[in-house]
């Protein structure tokens, strides 16, 4: 009797869990379907190649070339990686190998706190501090060399700086786990050969953790590509291919967020098509990260 009621309970729970799982999968599928169907019309009428490689983004004139936006996104992302990856890996090494247990815990929770700050707050931080700092301190110096440099401070550099901070938690915590997962035996083997700590870290530990570190960088890249609010506030949103770190830039995500509210039907469809591009980009990045982790069996 009891056995039977247990079995019924279990079936119910199983079905309920299945529904939850199915629900989330369906949601993802519907979102995908919606984005693709909404963006499709512009891709067809404007032509996918014209869309992706077109240099002119001016919806008012019916021009939907997103190359400047792609360039803006890639440059800001690259800048964020250049600033954030070395800092993040260095921090991970410090936490995993050097910091005393107590300090490591403290620092780690501080860095994880970074992940919890809403992105608009980062944007505000950039707007209130980074952009003026670039405008008031960096630009006067640069202008002596190149008088034509854009003078607003809204720039790729500002976006890269703030994004660089935003991707730190991803890089630090994943890389730290990967380094901690390197077996003690490798460390001992290296030291027993007469290596010092620095040599052991740079030549054995980090290489042994490289798949985990690499995955963290790819995921951070995904985060940087997808980030909207912070970047929107500080890069200046000028849809022109930026030629230097001090040029303003518009990103894929920022453009969607800014223009969606007033876009006409065709313009809206173009914005959804940008969504398709973003979607594919992120899927590719995530699959690379997953494949690398699987292939090398790195710690997640």
């Amino acid at each position: 009797m009891r056995g039977k009621s247990l079995k019924v309970k279990e079936t119910i729970i199983e079905k309920a869990l299945f529904l939850c799982a199915a629900g989330s999968v369906t949601a993802v599928a519907l979102i995908t379907l919606f984005i693709f169907s909404s963006g499709y019309s512009v891709l067809r009428s404007y032509g996918p190649l014209n869309f992706i490689f077109g240099m002119d983004w001016s919806p008012v004139n019916g021009e939907y070339g997103i190359l400047p936006l792609i360039a803006g996104t890639l440059e800001v992302t690259a800048g964020a990686l250049i600033l954030g990856v070395p800092a993040g890996i260095g921090c991970a090494v410090f936490l995993a190998e050097m910091a005393k247990e107590r300090w490591a815990k403290l620092l780690k929770s501080a860095i994880e706190l970074l992940a919890g700050i809403p992105s608009v707050v980062y944007g505000f931080f950039g707007l209130a501090i980074i952009v003026p700092a670039i405008r008031d301190w960096l630009l006067p110096a640069v202008q002596k060399i190149d008088p034509d440099v854009p003078a607003s401070g809204f720039s790729v550099l500002a976006g890269a700086f703030v994004l660089g901070i935003m991707i730190l938690p991803t890089i630090v915590s994943m890389s730290e786990n990967a380094i901690r997962a390197v077996p003690l035996e490798f460390r001992e083997a290296s030291l027993a050969l007469g290596a010092d700590r620095r040599e052991t870290i740079t030549k054995v530990l980090v290489p042994a953790a490289k798949s985990g570190i690499f995955s963290s960088v790819i995921l951070a890249m995904g985060r940087a590509v997808g980030e909207t609010m912070a970047v929107l506030l500080i890069t200046g949103n000028v849809p022109k291919v930026p030629t230097g770190p001090l040029d303003p830039a518009a990103t894929l995500t920022g453009t969607i967020a800014m223009e969606m509210s007033y876009a006409g039907p065709e313009h809206q469809s173009a914005l959804f098509a940008i969504g398709i591009v973003l979607f594919i980009l992120i899927v590719i990045l995530n699959s690379i990260a997953l494949a690398v982790m699987k292939r090398f069996g790195g710690a997640v």
């Binding site: 035996e185 490798f186 001992e188 083997a189 290296s190 027993a192 290489p207 042994a208």
Partner: peptide, 16 residues
């Protein structure tokens, strides 16, 4: 440690 080398219980070649 250069003069006094060590071989461990579990074979531990580097992943290289």
């Amino acid at each position: 440690r250069t003069k006094v080398g060590m071989v461990f219980q579990k074979p531990n070649p580097f992943p290289k």
